[in-house]
Design a protein around this nucleic acid. Structure first.
Length: 853
RNA sequence: GCCCGGGUGGCGGAACGGCAUACGCAGGGGACUUAAAAUCCCCUGGGGGAAACCCCAUGCAGGUUCGAGUCCUGCCCCGGGCACCA
């Protein structure tokens, strides 16, 4: 659609506009050019900096266009970086690209464009957008995870984990996305669906690569306590995901078989109430029975049906509990009773051992199953009071042990200890901590990722590629077909490798790594982004990390943040870093919605920043984005609201222009002055706002910081309207303070203003203002007068008034007297400097009431 | 079911236990203009009143307190996370 001709001629808005405006285009261009030229955001020597602040936005996936919702993340980060810089820190604020991943490959399949080309194009586009916002990153440190210079070190990290026994290949039941034609990590399955494309996930038995994150389950859980500056919500989510539970591991011998059936339980106190056993369809016992031909046709059919079912149906809570007996008996380890073993859909292979002891009296799931299949139910826990087991539902609480032989009479806690002890003595079990966390499945049957640096030799088997041969380069020439096999299989030259042991021909691993491996260490790379001889500089990262402020979306609360913590812990154990956690402070910003929904192309509610920046300037968009609401909360975008921010900047700029009309005032502004009356009131207000805004930005309350700046500008304009001169020392001071406070939020405008105010240095390097205590001082203050807690009057009194005097003044106030007339004063509360509350003894009769019509 | 958030004008939201509704948007009225836009000024929670002023209102019901949007108890609703986790 052709743009209006007028839009080109006016410097302000797209429509024909006269009247006051401000030259935002010119200001933006000049400011950005200056920042680049003066290299104000570049860090030359990481080891030289003294007061350091590492401010990091989660690096984006280069999907194409950014919208204003993304902008919130970068604007926040940029504002924080600028505030810290003005507060005297050396700031590191780098940016990069999480550039491997499926969308690039899907674009390749759909449009015959190479993923590398598609990605590069998107990076260029998004970089332009980030710069248009005025977000200033140290572009000298830009990295992209698809760059061989980067993924060489992702591969190196794989080898370090392999060396430490933390990377292994294993057969297992894995999540399979039929649309993306690849396996998924547990963390990438949401409600039984692929987190990326929402396709119901299936399971497959495949051999895959895993990182042993479970070895760090305990440390990852324990060190959440160190993350006091993380949102509580994120810590809770991670703790739930790790899912630690204490209990016991118990081995039930199987009649006629060597291997016992091992189970995990959190309730060893209910052991004597176990009346049957249940295993998952994927349990090795089922496979063994099948192999021996001892699986009944019924059981075989049942197991097959379960394995084929979609994950979302199979594991939904509402799904009916179904089962089939396996015809095998387990021997109770303490009572020796024979317990039938069943296979059922309600036991999951992915948790514990994939087998349970069923205690129907004290577990609702077991109870439902026992009821359905008429299996015996034995009550073994009986509390002193109701509720207790009543035969209608399981009693899941604690209580005294009954029907438990020699354990009768013990309380649950004692019973747990006693039973575990008895099991240990018999060699049938022991206390055990179990985690919900599974190992991290990192191999993907896709092209656009870092190749896993392994080869298979016919004689020496699986061998790691020597570090000296890294990177294993991703070949350009492959066929992109959604076959479910890695496209790398189509490149013969890539497949040919040599065995590092014998030098003979070997076959290269064709799986690539999950992109979350790429992003679990990038924050370390920024300190030495171009280093060719190491992944990162240990001295530099030890000096700069943990990241002081990490900013990103809450959608990464588990995946990226857990993986990064894991990798850093591995590095700490390997002596590569000297800190236990990568991110000191985490801020998760809320989503920006439009028409009540998350912005997406398919919904057609995306607000692109480009036209807004064109029409109102980057600073307007920045200010509105910060003003829209508390940054941690979701907010609804309102195009009209943008105009409010624009009007504010226009008013501010008018002051700047009119003020600088006479520069001599600047000189007087520097001189000490003790104004009185309106000038003094203006100073007090302005310095109060300095205090408030400083507090606001320190606490990430950017919405109220913007509001504070609006109030400051309103105060100056009110001062002028009341007859005050803009060419006055008090306005000179107000303008100076407002400009510095505005600098992190609307940097282009503030930069231009700072220049007009006669400063040779950029406002980026100006010091953050301090309020003048003397200016804050006042001789008079208002005292709120209440009667029985209701505000009835307000008086002006001298600051520091004695309590007794305040009390007397309150009681003397005519309006107060009207309300206490004839009533006895019970009490007078004086809050110094704030209020006086006169409390009367209430009259017994109610106040006269208006009769209803 | 369990664990986090949250519920304040027409809307986004503000408020160390102390003047609820700051700031902005929208709306109404006015000034300027041939007119419109832009800009500027005034009004704008509900009810009553000519006015002074009074009453009511922060999801609901209680409680603590001289005083509660804020703290406590119980509920309702909305958003998010986890979930046959043994």
């Amino acid at each position: 659609m052709p743009e209006s001709r007028q839009g080109e001629e006016t410097r302000g808005r797209g429509e024909a506009t006269r009247g006051p405006s401000y030259p935002f285009r010119e200001l933006s261009e000049r400011a950005q050019e200056r920042w680049r030229k003066e290299r104000l955001f570049e860090l030359d020597d990481p080891m030289a900096a003294d007061r350091r602040f590492y401010c990091l936005n989660m690096f984006p996936y280069p999907s194409g266009d950014l919208h204003v919702g993304h902008g919130r993340n970068y604007i926040l980060g940029d504002a924080v970086a600028r505030v810290k810089k003005m507060q005297g820190y050396t700031v590191l604020a780098p940016m990069g690209w999480d550039a491997f991943g499926l969308p690039a490959e899907n674009a390749a399949i759909a449009n015959q464009i190479h993923p590398a080309v598609w990605t590069k194009k998107n990076i260029a586009r998004m970089k332009t957008q980030l710069q248009a916002w005025g977000a200033m990153y140290d572009w000298n440190r830009e990295i992209a995870s698809c760059d061989p210079a980067y993924y060489k070190w992702t591969q190196w990290i794989f080898l370090q984990l392999y060396k430490r026994g933390l990377a292994h290949r294993a057969m297992g039941t894995v999540n399979w996305c039929p649309t993306d034609q690849t396996v998924l990590a547990n963390e990438q399955v949401v409600d039984g669906r692929c987190e990326r494309c929402d396709t119901p996930v299936e399971t497959r038995e495949l051999e895959q690569w895993y990182f042993k994150i479970t070895a760090y389950a305990d440390a990852l859980l324990r060190d959440l306590a160190l993350l006091e500056h993380w949102p509580e919500k994120v810590r809770v989510m991670q703790a739930n995901w790790i899912g630690r539970s204490e209990g016991a591991s118990v081995r039930f011998p199987l009649a006629g078989r060597d291997a016992p059936l091992e189970i995990f339980t959190t309730r060893p106190d209910t052991l004597m109430g176990a009346t049957f056993m249940v295993v998952a369809a994927e349990h090795p016992l089922v496979a063994a029975l099948a192999a021996e031909g001892r699986l009944s046709p019924d059981a075989a059919r049942f197991v097959e049906r379960l394995k084929r079912a979609r994950v979302e149906d199979r594991f939904a809570v509402e799904t009916e509990k179904e089962g089939v007996p396996l015809g095998v008996s387990a021997i109770h380890p303490l009572s020796g009773a024979k317990l039938p073993v069943w296979v059922s859909n309600y036991v999951l292979m992915g948790y514990g051992t994939g087998a349970i002891m069923a205690v129907p009296a004290h577990d609702q799931r077991d109870f439902e199953f026992a009821t359905t299949y008429r299996l015996p139910i034995v009550e073994v826990i009986r509390p002193d009071q109701e509720p207790r087991f009543d035969g209608k539902a399981a009693y899941e609480g604690e209580g005294g042990l009954v029907n438990s032989g020699r354990f009768d009479g013990l309380a649950s806690g004692e019973g747990k200890r006693a039973i575990v002890q008895a099991l240990e003595k018999e060699g049938k079990g022991e206390a055990r901590v179990n985690y919900r966390l599974r190992d991290w499945l990192i191999s993907r049957q896709r092209y656009w990722g870092a190749p896993i640096p392994m080869v298979t030799c016919p004689t020496h088997g699986m061998q790691p590629v020597p570090e000296s041969e890294l990177p294993v380069l991703l070949p350009d020439q492959v066929e992109f077909k959604p076959t479910g096999e890695s496209p790398l299989l189509s490149n013969e030259a890539f497949l040919r490798a040599t065995c590092p042991k014998c030098g003979g021909p070997a076959r290269r691993e064709t799986d690539t790594m999950d992109t979350f491996v790429d992003s679990s260490w990038y924050f370390l790379r920024f300190l030495s982004p171009k280093a060719e001889d190491r992944a990162f500089d240990t001295d530099a990262v030890n000096r700069w990390l943990p990241v002081n402020q990490y900013i990103g979306g809450v959608e990464h609360a588990i995946l990226h943040l857990l993986y990064s913590r894991f990798i850093v812990k591995v590095f700490q154990d390997a002596g590569l870093v000297a800190f236990p956690e990568p991110f000191e402070r985490l801020f998760t910003q809320g989503m920006i919605t439009k028409d009540g929904a998350k912005m997406s192309k398919s919904k057609g509610n995306v607000v692109p920043p480009d036209t807004l920046i064109e029409r109102y300037g980057a600073d307007t968009v920045r200010l509105y984005t910060l003003f829209i609401g508390p940054p941690e909360k979701d907010a609804e975008w309102n195009d009209r609201g943008v105009e409010g921010a624009y009007r504010f900047l226009t008013r501010y700029w008018r002051i700047i222009e009119e003020f600088t009309a006479t520069k001599e005032v600047m000189a007087t502004g520097k001189r000490p002055f003790a104004p009185s009356g309106p000038a003094r009131d203006l100073r007090r207000r302005v310095h109060q706002l300095v205090l408030q805004i400083t507090d606001d930005v320190d606490r990430f309350h950017f919405n109220t910081a913007v509001s504070g700046l609006m109030q400051m500008v309103n105060a100056i304009l009110d001062y002028e309207a009341a007859g005050g001169s803009l060419q006055s020392p008090e306005v000179a001071e107000a303008v100076d303070l407002a400009t510095r406070l505005l600098a992190p939020l609307a940097p282009h405008t503030a930069e231009g203003a700072w220049d007009r105010l006669g400063h040779p240095q950029s406002v980026v390097t100006a010091p953050w203002p301090q309020p003048d205590r003397a200016a804050l001082h006042s001789d008079l203050q208002s005292l709120v007068l209440q009667v029985n807690g209701k505000v009835r009057s307000q008086i002006e009194v001298a600051v520091g008034i004695e309590q007794e005097a305040a009390r007397a003044a309150a009681l003397a106030d005519p309006r107060v007297q009207r309300f206490i007339d004839g009533e006895e004063i019970a009490q007078v509360i004086v809050v110094p400097g704030r209020l006086v509350n006169v409390v009367t003894r209430r009259r017994p009769q109610p106040k006269p009431h208006q009769p209803k019509p």
